[in-house]
Write a protein that binds this DNA or RNA. Structure first.
Lengths: 139, 139
DNA sequence: TGTCTCAATGTATAATTGTATTATTGTACT
DNA sequence: AGTACAATAATACAATTATACATTGAGACA
């Protein structure tokens, strides 16, 4: 990877790594789909603890620049989609809704049941500002 | 098989697969006696290691939903009793709604816009249906 | 008919990868 | 000195993958 870190600059290592990786992506030396070094290999290369690398990766992941996947590795994400026109956006939203309702119907949902579930989840959506993960626990 | 999994959701792949397959069975898209894809073919389709598929199958096997047989394949067992099936159905509906709202959020939909679109489409869906309560607009 | 071979299937175990939690270190400030 | 806090490291853990293995069944063939 050949990233340069200055241990005496006073700037935290993980922040330096975030910047260096951002640069790589911005300049095209890293492109969507590319796998970044594993936290351990990059840590070895930079003579740093792998948790420090993981911290940098996590920051980039939260911003959506890369995707870290346990057991698989970390990958450069697709470039943020260009501004989509309002009409296309609305069309996509309608298609999405159509598919959703079709699936719900297949699941035998009545309009009342759907109404209830939507009200419930939209409330959470608005309160949290984002959506919570569905519950996957068994029974 | 056309199963959808989200590598970024933070939910383990094998658990996502368990849920998706449960949904298929609960909704009758997979019926008793049907053969599931081999661990290798499904793994290839999902770009995943076949052991991950095997892990999902094993979980479903232990619960008695499917039957995996070395050298033969894996098959859907008899339908689970209705009360279990109903639980799975509800959970599937909630997960479906969650994914829908997450996608809609990504498209920049406000709750008001969503409400309008849903009202529109539900009208077409069931002529009788008034899906959303008006008070959802409030606050 | 028997059995041999082999491809396709699931299984078991270890290695690789990221994650979470806790401990250590360094630095600024009283 | 002492305290508080951030950065880093140590350790244990969970998910996924890599590799080798065991089981099954279909076909070849004597």
């Amino acid at each position: 990877m050949n990233i340069e870190i200055d241990f005496r600059s006073g700037i935290p290592i993980y922040l330096q790594m975030v910047e260096r990786i951002k640069e790589r992506i911005a300049t095209g030396r890293l492109t969507p789909g590319d796998q970044l070094p594993t936290v351990r290999s990059l840590a070895l290369e930079l003579r740093v603890n792998f948790n420090t690398v993981a911290r940098a990766y996590r920051i980039l992941d939260e911003v959506g620049i890369i995707s870290t996947q346990q057991g698989r590795g970390t990958y450069v994400m697709n470039n943020p989609p260009p501004e989509i026109s309002e009409k296309i956006r609305q069309k996509a939203l309608k298609a999405l809704t159509h598919r959703y309702l079709a699936d719900a119907e297949r699941l035998g949902a009545s309009s009342e049941e759907l109404n209830q579930i939507l009200k419930d989840q939209v409330t959470h959506w608005q309160q949290a500002g984002h959506l919570l993960d569905p519950e996957l626990d068994n029974e």
